[in-house]
């Protein structure tokens, strides 16, 4: 089975994000990067499938800044977990703030590849768009099931059963393959790469690709920081008087009860 996994590198979620002087971009100098946490679930699921089905291949696909060392580091982490190959599409010159453009650049590079399943994260924790997977599936004309928490591929590899949290409960779906599935937390527990895996990954080649620029559909005009939450108050006094005080504040001051 051929599995493609979309992986993006994102700033560590603990990072302090600072804006540049004209508020058009973030300062990237000191940022520490990680694999987008949702993409780790996607990688893990792909590797699990490849362990289950003989002759499988897991190819990581990343659109990112090829000049940045961290980008290849991100891919190497995925290779260390057990992926077979990695393709890095250089984002230089592309306006990746537009999910349509991201999806398109990935589309250009994978439409000719063989695949049975594409796995991705549910959203990227930097831009928080959660749009790329659906847009990409649309371009490839394959079904997309988003935010899955369970995936079972049939033995003949023609269909897959999956589960996701819908509005009215847990939906169980069957999709024909090839299809794209985006991973929600709960799908699995990503593995901690073995030393052997890491050493092997360090030696692997990462294929470098490019994409033709198309015009973006959306544009970020500026960035801003949210207004800080005003400091709250600790309701003083001994129990239970403080709780009584809180209850009355909620009515008289906050007016929420």
């Amino acid at each position: 089975m051929n599995i493609l996994v979309l992986v993006k590198q994102t700033p560590d979620t603990e990072s302090k994000i600072k804006l540049n002087s004209d508020n058009t971009a973030i300062e990237t100098g000191d940022l520490k990067y990680i694999i987008n946490p949702y993409d780790e679930y996607a990688i893990e699921e792909a590797i699990k499938l490849s362990e289950k089905f003989a002759d499988s291949k897991v190819t990581l696909i990343c659109l990112g800044n090829a000049a940045l060392k961290e980008t290849t580091e991100t891919l190497r982490k995925g290779l260390a977990m057990g992926a077979s190959d990695a393709i890095l599409i250089d984002a230089a010159g592309l306006n990746t703030a537009c999910p349509y453009l991201t999806a398109n650049a990935i589309y250009q590079n994978i439409s000719s590849l063989k695949y049975d399943i594409i796995l991705s994260g549910m959203k990227a924790v930097d831009d928080d768009y959660s749009c790329v997977p659906t847009l990409l599936a649309g371009m490839l004309n394959i079904p997309a099931v988003t935010a899955i928490v369970k995936l079972t591929v049939s033995p003949d590899q023609k269909t897959a059963e999956c589960e996701r949290e819908g509005e009215s409960g847990r939906e169980v779906l069957i999709s024909s393959l090839p299809a794209l599935f985006s991973a929600q937390k709960g799908l699995n527990e990503p593995r901690y790469p073995s030393l052997k895996g890491i050493m092997a990954a360090k030696k692997k080649e990462i294929a470098n690709k490019k994409a033709e620029a198309v015009s973006p559909k959306i544009k970020i005009v500026k960035l801003s920081t949210p207004p800080p939450r005003p400091a709250g108050k600790i309701v003083k006094g001994d129990f239970p008087n403080n709780v009584k005080e809180l209850a009355s504040l909620l009515r008289s001051e906050a007016k929420v009860i």
Binding site: P11, T13, K16, I17, L19, I26, A97, C98, V125, D126, D127, D128, Y129, S215, P216, K217, I218, K219, I220, V221, K222, L223, S224, T225, P226
Partner: peptide, 30 residues
């Protein structure tokens, strides 16, 4: 809607640490 009449949507990014003011580019509709 900005002074120039452009429609802009504000979307939180980076786990809410940043807000992006986004407009449609070369689009008839969105």
């Amino acid at each position: 809607v900005y002074e120039d009449g452009e429609f802009v949507a504000v979307h939180p990014m980076y786990a809410g640490k940043i807000r992006a003011h986004i407009k449609f580019e070369n689009q008839p509709g969105g």
